[in-house]
């Protein structure tokens, strides 16, 4: 009974990612899209935001990374990329989708 959580805001602008992580349950999936992808980058002040959430599956939407000039090499450990088709698969294989606006 997993939930797909989408986060579309930069964690430097709002607390959507932090709130999402605080409400996600083990086995849930987090997908960072739009400005949300900044939350998946290493070497930032918020790089430890995902620490302690190893029971979650964390993805970023690759076209949004690419658009912002972020190389997949900059991603935090444990973060995977998906394309649009992968986004659809995630939505289809989880029980509900919840947007953190």
């Amino acid at each position: 009974m997993a939930t797909l959580h989408t986060v579309n805001k930069s964690p430097f602008a709002t607390k959507a990612l932090q709130s999402c992580l605080a409400h996600a349950r083990d086995g849930d999936v987090i997908l960072m899209i739009e400005d949300g992808v900044y939350g998946a980058t290493a070497g930032t002040d918020l790089a430890d935001v995902l620490a302690g959430h190893s029971a979650l599956k964390i993805y970023v939407l690759e076209p949004d990374l690419q658009a912002r000039g972020l190389d997949t090499g900059r991603l935090l450990d444990g973060v995977s990329t998906v394309d649009y088709a992968g986004f659809v698969d995630l939505a289809a294989t989880t029980d509900r989708t919840m947007a953190w606006l």
Partner: peptide, 18 residues
């Protein structure tokens, strides 16, 4: 509580965010 809220989310068929 926050933990109860997380449980409430997990019971839903449809979640609409605003």
């Amino acid at each position: 509580s926050r933990a109860e809220m997380a449980d409430i989310f997990a019971e839903q068929d449809v979640v609409l965010s605003f």
